[in-house]
Write a protein that binds this DNA or RNA. Structure first.
Length: 474
RNA sequence: UCCUCGAUAGCUCAACGGUAGAGCAUCCGGCUGUUAACCGGAGGGUUGCUGGUUCGAAUCCAGCUCGGGGAGCCA
């Protein structure tokens, strides 16, 4: 990649550290200028070393400076976190830990760093770093996490765009409060002191901003289906909000979700899409962030690379809910919760299936209708629905999807059975009246994908500023 | 929301009923190739908050707040 800053041959070249590592031949022996932040300084009486990072590359550039420097005393006093611009010659390094280093001829101090800077050059706990979420992207782990996150987002867009999917922006504010996917955050401009009431005492939402009750979306799926039945293949990728009081390493109140929806497609097509997408993203990240992935493998999860590479080579497992119940019943494992057909699978059951029995990602399909949402397509047995969950080792449920019920009479019956108001779904039901066809889709929790890709074990450490119960700092 | 464990210097931890310590970080000094550099010195604390027991509480008890792990809900 040619830097937009790169100058002509023989002149001083300003470039980013990534380029020195990717094309060191081009720069070795030449004069360069580089901007960055000090990660650590090691100084002696007449010379010193600076580890410089400019955010473009995982590794640091070692800068060597000597007494001849005009501002040697000031440079020698630099502390971790300072911003500097260095000019000098890029030379081969005699040290064992880096191939080359920058022999400084001039160091300009662009921004000093106060001595109470909380980041040290030793290891911090993730719990502490969460309290300084504005500074943590400067650490190795978070630099790696958020570069992988960026690459994974790009890979997802690329995967769908290459396959002619249309990216749909579904609304963040929704008027539908009956999507059944959990507690919602209310959106209102009504005052708290004198909330308008109707005669019976309930809040009068006709006087609210939208003239009706509105909430933050818990899923873009129903809206995505409308565009699916126009474009054939669509996907959403945006923020999602759940007001559940969930206190776990896998839940956040604000998270990002990817929801593809495909027309003229059944559950099998849906699972094939999900598997292809997962493999595409894994492959893309392994190829484009090798330094970051090596770091995770070394310091975060020692079996990460082996596991991801194995996933690329193997086919995902497939098992029906009914078969899964049999596997669990016949397993030697002692479960805390009893296994019975009709009960939802507990976390311990899901973990056993993904981590012990299959030891790779596995689709569980055809769940009892009682434990799944109204829009999932009824199977011929009238007892199970065409649903699928993808379980992955270490994270658990990462995808939930289904073939949608396209038969109007079946769908109306399901709404009635669940006590849902038919009028609230008038436009959703219209899709079944006007050219309805079989279609399917799924929801992928983006943060859970990042956890799976990096080996990070807490969702709060894979999203820039996590929102969880009792925490919305920053 | 439930169960469980925890909160001591900026950070990571020790002290477990009797004067609150160490390593790292910071500041000062030393050191001619360092790699979480090294060596010497200094400053730094209402022991999460409120109350209780005790001659005496970081330590024991109660409540609260916040955090970790597990569970539920789910992505």
């Amino acid at each position: 990649m040619q830097s937009k800053h790169a100058g002509g041959v023989g002149k001083m070249q300003t470039a980013v550290i990534k380029e020195f590592f990717k094309q060191s031949d081009k720069y070795l022996g030449g004069k360069i200028r580089v901007d960055g932040w000090v990660r650590t300084v090691r100084v002696s009486k007449t010379f010193g070393f600076i580890e410089l990072n400019d955010g473009t590359f995982f590794a640091n550039l070692q800068v060597v400076f000597e007494e001849s420097l005009g501002n040697f005393t000031e440079v020698a006093k630099l502390v971790t976190g300072s911003a500097i611009t260095v000019e000098g010659e890029l030379v081969e390094s005699p040290g064992a830990k880096q191939p080359f280093e920058l022999k400084a001829e001039n160091i300009e101090i662009m921004g000093t760093c106060a001595p109470d800077y909380p980041l040290q050059k030793k290891r911090h706990t993730f719990e502490f770093l969460r309290t300084i979420a504005h500074l943590r992207p400067r650490t190795n782990t978070f630099a790696a996490v958020f570069r992988v996150r960026s690459l994974a987002a790009y890979a997802i867009h690329q995967f769908f765009q290459e396959r002619d999917f249309v990216y749909v922006h579904t609304p963040v504010i929704t008027g539908s409060d009956a999507e059944g996917a959990g507690e919602m955050f209310r959106v209102t401009t009504l005052g708290f002191d004198k909330t308008p009431r109707k005669e019976a005492g309930q809040v009068d939402f006709t006087r609210d901003f939208f003239g009706r009750e509105t909430n933050l979306t818990v899923s873009g799926q129903l809206e995505a289906e409308t565009y699916c039945l126009a474009f054939g293949r669509v996907y959403t990728f945006g923020p999602t909000f759940r007001a559940e009081n969930s206190n776990t390493p896998r839940h956040a109140a604000e998270f990002w979700m990817i929801e593809p929806e495909i027309a003229f497609a059944d559950l099998k097509d849906d699972m094939n899409l999900a598997e292809a997408m997962m493999k595409y993203v894994i492959g893309y990240v392994l190829e484009n962030a090798p330094e970051e992935m090596d770091f995770f493998d070394k310091f975060i999860d020692k079996s990460l690379l082996a596991r991801l590479e194995n996933v690329l080579k193997s086919h995902f497992g497939h098992v029906t809910y009914t078969e899964a119940i049999d596997i669990l019943k016949n397993s030697p494992e002692k479960f805390e919760y009893p296994v019975e057909w009709g009960c939802d699978l507990q976390t311990e059951h899901e973990r056993y299936l993904a981590e012990k029995h299959f030891q790779k990602p596995v689709f569980v399909t055809d769940y009892p209708k009682q434990i799944k949402a109204f829009y999932m397509r009824m199977n011929d047995d009238q007892n199970t629905v065409a649903a699928m969950d993808l379980l992955v080792p270490g994270v658990g449920e990462i995808i939930g999807g289904s073939q949608r019920e396209e038969r109007l009479d079946y769908l109306e019956q399901r709404l009635a059975d669940l006590g849902l108001n038919r009028e609230d779904y008038w436009w959703y039901l219209d899709l079944r009246k006007y050219g309805g066809t079989k279609h399917a889709g799924f929801g992928l929790g983006f943060e859970r994908l990042i956890m799976y890709l990096t080996g990070m074990s807490n969702i709060r450490d894979v999203i820039s500023f996590p929102r969880t119960p009792k925490n919305a700092e920053f």
